[in-house]
Design a binder for these strands. Structure first.
Length: 480
RNA sequence: GCACCCAUCGACUAGAGGCCUAGGUCGUCACCCUUUCACGGUGAAAACACGGGUUCGAAUCCCGUUGGGUGUACCA
């Protein structure tokens, strides 16, 4: 590694949303930059006009900001190496393509998509490598000029050496050898005049002074083409680090098909950014000790590429939920309430009373991993009547002891001074003494009568939340 | 098909030749705490893909096999 400070980049294509795999790539780049005092660049790779999605770049920026990843340079941020959107850099690529053409390191290709497709089919049918057959590589100079003048559409392809091999070093995987004859004559410039990813990313990384290319493993097979390009241009090659993929449960590349993958999906679900970042950071990297809970700054302090693993990591929603629960419980009451309130309203709870809403949210904080789950616990606060759904429950309430407990509770409740949890608990103790019924026989009829549930928070809390009137109404409904 | 990458509990991983009776976390199960549940605590079950080497000694190094993944576009 050179002594210069590192410059790294996250270079997503604006396809509409930020994939969690992309988030992790961005995160590792950010952590690397912070750890070594480097610069983090955001670059938008939008050279495919047919895939243009309105507002996608803005979505990307929003999701990244939500996750707490701050860029030093990029669109809307500025920097000395702009523009940071590839569609605005067209002239730079054109100049470099011309140079390659002039030096005989690239050539014009006039094959139509249909011809290429047919050729590919033939090769596959013959069980051969499905690479481009290089027919335009041997076109004479006059032939090329004639077609150009006739206005034939063309692409420009990389003139890969026919023999020999190439060595590339990956910071995570070590040395990799690839034979030139296994490398395709990649299209560098499309017939619409836009560069392909391969050309644009090499030109931009060089022009932007990128020292470390940290990206997903799906790029490993095309890295030899990039290395060749650096050689052809006579540029110093950046260091490469290919991150292991994020996987579905069946170990295929994490995809939309098998569940949520967009950062905005997790956000909408109530996953906290700190939880997502913490979880995703540990998918493919670990600090070397037993720590699991990390803030961004702690991650940045501990991060290093040589602790990144090579094998892909399954994205386990259950563990994400656990992380989220940890962060949810650490939240101050007002923040927790802000997150839960929409779901409480959806369950029919009136959140107008802020103090009461906070009390309810705090009461169930230990019961949920996602804010949306609170709805399942507050039904008894919303509905006026309680229904018991099995005979055992009904028996607990209608039994002789149950009826005595309920009746006594109602009498004492009517005369209790302040209606709050501790007083109510003390009162239940008195009901126990009055009736001689204790334990399950005492608590279960009361709990069922109030909430209709066998489980839940302390009875005192349940009663306090309901209020004296509601409690008395429910008890009387359960008395013959 | 071809190229490349990868391979420790169900999942995320620790392990860089003896510290391994393979450790931690999620999940699962049991017990404790609790009126109950949740939280919390304690504990358990659970893995070095296989076969050859190298070595006094291999989860760790080498080779092969098998398995999996990615790529193979005028997409990124």
């Amino acid at each position: 590694m050179t002594a210069t400070t590192p410059r790294v980049r996250f270079a997503p294509s604006p396809t509409g949303y930020l994939h969690v795999g992309g988030l992790r790539t961005a995160l590792y780049n950010a952590l690397f930059a912070r750890r070594y005092g480097g610069t983090l660049v955001l670059r938008i790779e939008d050279t495919d006009r047919s895939r243009y999605v309105e507002g996608a770049a803005e979505n990307l920026a929003t999701a990244l900001a939500w996750a707490g990843i701050d860029f030093d340079e990029g669109p809307g941020i500025g920097g000395d190496h702009g523009p940071y959107v590839q569609s605005e850099r067209a002239a730079m690529y054109a100049g470099h393509v011309t140079r390659l053409l002039d030096e005989g390191k690239a050539y014009h290709c006039f094959c139509t998509p249909e011809e290429l497709d047919a050729s590919r089919q033939r090769q596959i049918a013959a069980k051969r490598d499905a690479a481009y057959d290089r027919r335009c590589r041997s076109l004479s100079e006059a032939d090329v000029r004639a077609r150009l003048e006739a206005g034939h559409p063309y692409t420009v392809r990389l003139k890969v050496p026919l023999a020999g091999q190439l060595q590339l070093r990956d910071l995570i995987r070590g040395d990799i050898t690839v034979f030139h004859d296994a490398i395709d004559d990649q299209v560098l410039m499309k017939s619409d005049g836009f560069p392909t990813y391969h050309l644009a990313n090499v030109v931009d990384d060089h022009l932007m002074g990128i020292t470390h290319v940290i990206r997903g493993e799906e790029w490993l097979p095309s890295t030899p083409k990039h290395v060749l390009l650096y050689e052809f241009f006579g540029w110093e090659t950046p260091q490469f680090a290919h991150l292991p993929l994020l996987l579905n449960a069946d170990r295929s590349k994490l995809s939309k098909r098998q569940g949520d993958v967009a950062v905005e999906d997790f956000r909408a679900k109530g996953i906290l950014p700190e939880a997502l970042v913490n979880f995703v950071a540990l998918l493919g990297w670990n600090p070397g000790d037993d720590r699991e809970l990390f803030t961004f700054d702690e991650l940045a302090a501990a991060f290093s590429l040589d602790r990144v693993s090579k094998a892909g990591a399954v994205f386990d929603m259950e563990k994400l939920r656990w992380f989220n629960a940890q962060y949810l419980r650490a939240l101050p009451a007002d923040a927790l309430t802000t997150l839960c309130a929409p779901w409480m309203r959806e369950a029919g709870f009136d959140t107008a009373d802020q103090a009461r809403t906070e009390t309810v949210a705090a009461t169930f904080a230990n019961y949920i991993s996602l804010p949306s789950e609170i709805g399942a616990f507050i039904g008894f606060l919303v509905h006026d009547t309680v229904s018991l759904d099995n005979d055992t429950q009904r028996a607990a309430v209608t039994s002789e002891d149950g009826q005595r407990v309920l009746a006594r509770f109602a009498e004492r409740a009517a005369g209790l001074d302040a209606w709050e949890r501790d007083g109510i608990k003390a009162m239940v103790k008195q009901v126990q003494q009055d009736t001689g019924v204790k334990g399950k026989g005492l608590f279960m009829p009361l709990r069922l009568a109030h909430s209709g549930e066998e489980h839940g928070p302390d009875l005192g809390i349940v009663c306090e939340l309901l209020g004296r009137e509601a409690c008395l109404t429910r008890i009387h409904a359960c008395l013959e």
